[in-house]
Amino acid sequence: MQTVIKGVRKYILMVAVTAILVALLMLFAPSTRSLSILVTLLEQGMAPALLGWGVLFNIKAGNWDFGVGAEVLIAAIVGGNAADALGLGIVGVVCCCMLAGLAAGAVSGLLYKLLRVPTIIISIALMLIYESVCGVIFGGRGVTLGVEYLVLASFPGNAVMLLLGFGLAWLLSSKLKIGYSIKAVGSNLKVAEDNGIDVVNTKAAALAIAGLFAGLYAAVSLGSSGVARTVSAMGTMGTCFNAMMCVFIGLSITGRGNVLVGIYFGAVIMQMIQMALMVFSFPTQYSQVVVALFVVAFMLASANTEGLRRLKRRRAAANGAKQ
């Protein structure tokens, strides 16, 4: 019983916040009052959560990696075309995309290790390079897969990928030393170093891991849409920022629970915001503004939880002083 109570307390914040927002949406938008909408939201949160988990490793390690969107793109184009050419089916797409994404992330990590310049610079340079390369390889046509590959847009395909991604993220963060090293490096570099953790290799590993998840996300995208086309002029940064926002919201509602689950709920909340904007006919050109305001609000609430508690105490103390 104690374990159950402990478990509930750990996850109550993220579940409650998400549930309240869903309830509010359903309250004010009657067209959303159905189980299928709830299922849709839970499904729509799956793919962004995959990329969010990859981005989390970078954020934990203190890396600023704006190239993860470009890694998604190159993983999709290289992995998708390779799997299709070899006739490997959807499993081949997943494997090839993950390998391509891992390679792209590993290049990022290797460059960081060799050049020792800030990760933000490496990532922006590689973003430009990867976008350009995508415009050249395979005739610049990107990748198009046949309908037989489109099995990841719905249950059970999407659930399998979510579980695969979760398992991988959990393994890396909780069951392998690298996860702890990443956390230590990002939290206190000096103490981490003093305890024998190789800071440079750890940060490089985080970049590679993010690439792996970029490949996973690319595979899910291909397995849902069947297509990936080239993007230029740093257009892939949008993908990167969306993933970061899922992570920021997730971190603010995780509380004592598992941060991976928190990020999934963060992704669901992001999709809910998009749905709400559509339902309330909010002009699309302001949708990013609304999303950004939500993210800021979540971050403020999270950062100021102590302040809110103090406010409560101050009021109680003032009342006590009056009596």
Binding site: S36, T40, P48
Partner: peptide, 17 residues
Amino acid sequence: DGNSQTHINGITNFLNL
């Protein structure tokens, strides 16, 4: 950003809502 997920989610929301 050419992200196909945006189209997928947009169309899915159309159909559901």
